[in-house]
Amino acid sequence: MPEISRFFGIRVEMFYDEHLPPHFHARYEGERAAFTLDGTLMEGEMTGQAYRLVREWAAIHPAELNENWNLAEQHLPLKRIPPLS
């Protein structure tokens, strides 16, 4: 499970051989959730500030997330995406 970013204790990952729609996973203090590339919660649970930060991060990096999804589909190395600062 390649980590593509980490910020404020939130770990963002994107997996190979995943199902559609294109998405990424985020973990924070025991919470786990999957988000579509536009930052919409798809499954799992992420609450409060962590949820808002993941959505903000996704809104800033749509092109990079899309590029990583395409790389994952081809089983190529994923690129790190800058964290929120």
Rank of each mutant, 00 (worst) to 15 (best):
L65I: 09
H19N: 13
I60R: 15
E73V: 04
Y51T: 02
E64F: 03
A72M: 08
E43V: 02
N70S: 14
Y28K: 10
R32V: 06
L41K: 04
I4D: 09
E45K: 10
I60T: 15
A58F: 01
V54L: 04
S5I: 03
E13S: 09
I60C: 05
L78S: 09
F24P: 09
P22A: 15
L78G: 08
G9E: 09
H75R: 15
R6C: 11
S85H: 14
T36A: 14
Q74W: 01
H61V: 04
D38W: 01
L71S: 10
E31P: 08
P21Y: 00
I10T: 09
H23W: 05
H61L: 04
T40A: 14
G9V: 09
S85N: 15
L41A: 05
P62C: 11
K79M: 06
W57I: 01
L84I: 14
Y51N: 13
I60H: 09
E43M: 06
R52E: 14
N70G: 10
L84W: 00
T36E: 13
G44I: 00
R11N: 10
H25C: 10
P2H: 06
E43Q: 10
H25F: 08
R52Y: 03
G48E: 04
P22M: 01
L78N: 08
R11V: 15
S85C: 01
D17N: 14
E29I: 00
E45S: 10
L65W: 04
R32L: 10
E13D: 09
W69H: 13
W57F: 01
L65P: 08
E3T: 14
E64Q: 14
L76T: 03
T47L: 13
R52Q: 14
W57H: 03
I60W: 02
T36L: 15
G9R: 06
K79D: 08
R55N: 09
L37K: 03
P2C: 07
R32A: 12
Q49C: 06
F7W: 03
H23T: 11
L71A: 13
M42C: 06
D38P: 03
G39Y: 00
Y51D: 13
H75G: 08
H23M: 08
E43W: 02
G30Q: 12
V12T: 05
T40K: 11
N68T: 07
